[in-house]
Simulated assay, not measured.
Amino acid sequence: MKRIGLFLLTNIAVMAVAMLTLNLLGVGSYMQGTSLNLGNLFMFALVFGFAGSFVSLAMSKWMAKMSTGAQVIETPRNQDEQWLLDTVRRQAEKAGIKCPEVAIYDSPEPNAFATGMSKNNSLVAVSTGLLRFMQRNEVEAVLGHEVAHVANGDMVTMALLQGILNTFVIFFAKIVAYVVDRVVLKNEEEGHSWAFIITDIVAQILFGILASIIAMWFSRYREFHADNGGAYLAGKENMIAALKRLQTMQPGHLPDQMAAFGISAAPSSFGDLFKSHPDLADRIAKLEATTQDQLKVA
């Protein structure tokens, strides 16, 4: 129920932001009589495409805390929490960013994630399962991987990419729907017919699949860079050891909003094209072939 409530809240916020923006920009209807106004349609697609992406980004820390139950370490209660804070502070300083909030969430599955709307307004969280089953040098590498995501600006970059993809999905889906409705079916009535609405939905699903392939390809590419950054911040051997440890564990589940920024992910049900993370064996091989002077953040 909590996830359904968060989903509905996010979509209400997206609709409100998009409608307000369209009104402020004075963008009229993209359907004018029986004609399609491409300028208005593009602005409509642009606003709705980026509204969803950036509302999710702006709410990402709050959503992460709500959906996983992550508790931010304000005052360390024990040596482990103090070590986590000190480690992230040290890595953030080395990466040249403000120290993220550090949190722990209760889950038997080993995972960690980073989120936040900017390099200097972010959150790094680890699961209790990861802390329980990994050695400290391995946890340090995982933290380095997540700090590297933040320092590389991956959350913002993914939001920008998703906004662009959303824009073109909406834009071209409505053009296809218009052609089917007005040219193929020769509908001459004003407004949206059922043929337009149904075709629009189907086209958005199909174009959305193609967009997801592009987004997941970029996500996999970005994971290699986060591994590289983690090796720079925590040591190459530690990063390799952490990835090898993950090979022996069942990947932890994360909500969709954070899944792309986790240290690992469950295999995709739809094949390699839809995986957010490369295979661990490929990540290990990539790091082993990387020389010390090639390790860096951003």
Rank of each mutant, 00 (worst) to 15 (best):
I4R: 02
F7S: 09
N11M: 12
A13G: 02
V27S: 09
L38A: 07
G49T: 12
A51R: 01
A51D: 03
G52T: 03
K61E: 12
S67I: 12
Q71P: 01
R77C: 03
R77H: 09
D80T: 15
A92T: 05
A95W: 10
I97N: 08
K98G: 06
I104C: 13
Y105H: 14
D106Q: 14
S107A: 14
E109M: 14
K119M: 09
S122Y: 01
A125R: 06
L130K: 06
A141E: 02
E146I: 09
A151M: 12
M155C: 04
M155P: 00
T167Q: 07
F168L: 07
V183W: 08
V184K: 01
V184S: 00
N187L: 01
N187V: 02
N187P: 00
E189P: 00
A195Q: 04
I198F: 03
T199E: 00
T199S: 07
T199G: 00
I209S: 04
S212F: 09
S212H: 04
I214A: 14
M216Q: 08
S219Y: 03
F224Q: 01
D227Q: 10
D227K: 11
N228V: 10
A231T: 08
E237K: 15
A242F: 13
Q247K: 15
P251E: 05
P251H: 10
M258V: 09
I263M: 06
F270M: 10
K275W: 06
A285E: 15
A285T: 08
Q292T: 12
V297H: 03
